[in-house]
Amino acid sequence: MVIDQKKMQSLSDRMVEAEVKGRSPWADARRRFFRNRAAMLGLTILVLVTLFALFGGALAQWSNEELDFSVMGRVAELGAPSLANGHYFGTDNLGRDLYARTVQGTQISLMVGIVGAAIAVIVGTLYGATAGYVGGRTDQIMMRAVDILMSIPYMFVLILLLVMFGRSMSMLFLGIGLISWLDMSRIVRGQTLSLKNREFVEAARATGVSSFRIIIRHIVPNLLGVVAVYATLLVPLMILTESFISFLGLGVQEPLTSWGALISEGAGTMNYGTLWQLAFPLFFFVITLFGFFFVGDGLRDALDPKER
């Protein structure tokens, strides 16, 4: 048999090659995600909306507090969107620049959504993973506490909180944060229960790895797929909740604004021929929710290929 010297050489080169790079499950998921058209469209929308929130203010010719006295009182005739007077999205009923207001509302709504989801992810994951991993009586007590909190009609409590302690952003964050982690902790606990009897967790326990490190190194990384999917679906839910509260007039207060507040104002003047006051905030609201849902779906498909 003739041995191909060149081939043998390349084989031996490959054998001694310094450290082959591994393909982690995360890298696989990323590849699948980037191949998903709908998810990429959603991600593009979200990136654009975020850029709009961060840098849109630089393009505005009016600040969000300034009243344009030239259009005041005749908003329906003079306040329509126009490039000439610098009101790209028109003005609101008081003559404030709607473009600047929308930028401001986008910032606040995104912040509420992301902070609410972040609280849910951090608190819910740790709480659920602890309850599921420790098990027994601790689990019983922790999960019954969640059941009790869930049985409270949260919208009612949130409205009461805002009425009693004043309408402030911090109160809104607190209220949304208090309720958002409950579902997450349940989902995470269920996943933890199925993970904790897997052999690799047993192997770690047999080696003497502490419970805290097992949760952090073995349980949580294997949960993150589910958590990531749920979190992306939670962000629009938080935005919706905040918008609903603001629509009722209890959420974000002037001079701050949010999508919900802007939509509420726009809806109030719908009949007076100033439809742009509703259309622009609503457009951003809708495409952002679409974006989050597409990204959430894409993440689920990417992280759990068996499900398809």
Binding site: S24, P25, W26, E199, F200, E202, A203, A206, P221, N222
Partner: peptide
């Protein structure tokens, strides 16, 4: 625990899929 170690039945299940070798 340093002196007593264990090898498990299911080779793949006993390794954490998110950690490298």
């Amino acid at each position: 625990r340093q002196d007593i170690q264990m090898v498990f039945q299911d080779p793949l299940a006993s390794l954490n899929p998110r950690m490298n070798v």
